[in-house]
């Protein structure tokens, strides 16, 4: 048994969660990839300080969050969206809830999100597809769909809120209450 073998299991189990956590706040996906790698390298070096009684996901996302704050200080707000400790903690809590959804892997958890797309209105669905699947900025989406810019932003934000509410209803704690 060596610690590296076990660490590989942990990396495979948590890398997608850390990546999503960073993609939520970084404009550049390549920068997110760099920080994912850096976060796990720090985790590897600091593994001796990790409290094994605690879940690994929040610990490694905590490292990623600190790296993100440093990155924002260096790169400025043009590269990194607004973040502070409180926002990062709130986001981490959401991701920990996400990990409790049905399924064994992050991709299986994402199936719950895919299922939630049926809850979107046609406008929200179009805006989300064009923004996330095709990578279009809000102005281009507005031009294509014939909406105003602000309307596109609202469709995206409302669409996210609809998806989040749908996901929240799939959490085990909520399902037990129903």
């Amino acid at each position: 048994m060596d610690s590296r073998d076990l660490f590989e299991i942990l990396v495979r189990a948590h890398i997608d969660s850390v990546r999503s956590f960073l993609l939520g706040s970084l404009r550049d996906p390549l920068a997110a990839e760099d920080l994912v790698q850096e976060a796990f390298l720090v985790a590897w070096r600091k593994l001796d300080y990790y409290d094994r009684k605690m879940p690994f996901g929040p610990w490694v996302r905590g490292i990623a969050g600190k790296l993100l704050l440093n990155w924002r200080r260096k790169q400025g707000r043009s590269k990194v969206h607004f973040v502070d400790d409180e926002t990062l903690q709130l986001m981490d809590h959401r991701f920990e809830e996400f990990s409790s959804l049905a399924g064994d892997s992050f991709d299986e958890h994402l199936n719950a999100l895919r299922d939630c797309f049926t809850c979107l209105s046609p406008q929200q669905r179009s805006a989300i597809d064009l923004h996330y699947q095709h990578g279009l900025h809000c102005r281009e989406i507005a031009r294509r769909l014939g909406f105003g810019l602000e309307a596109v932003k609202k469709h995206l934000q409302r669409g996210r809120a609809v998806l989040q509410k749908c996901l929240a209803n799939k959490l085990p704690s909520v399902r037990e209450e129903l």
């Binding site: 997608d16 990546r19 999503s20 956590f21 960073l22 993609l23 939520g24 706040s25 996906p29 969206h81 926002t87 986001m91 959401r94 991701f95 996400f98 994402l110 999100l113 895919r114 989300i128 996330y132 996210r160 809120a161 998806l163 989040q164």
Partner: peptide
């Protein structure tokens, strides 16, 4: 942000 990260990741 949470949903933004998930959608981008997906």
């Amino acid at each position: 942000r949470y949903m933004h990260g998930l959608l981008r990741s997906m």
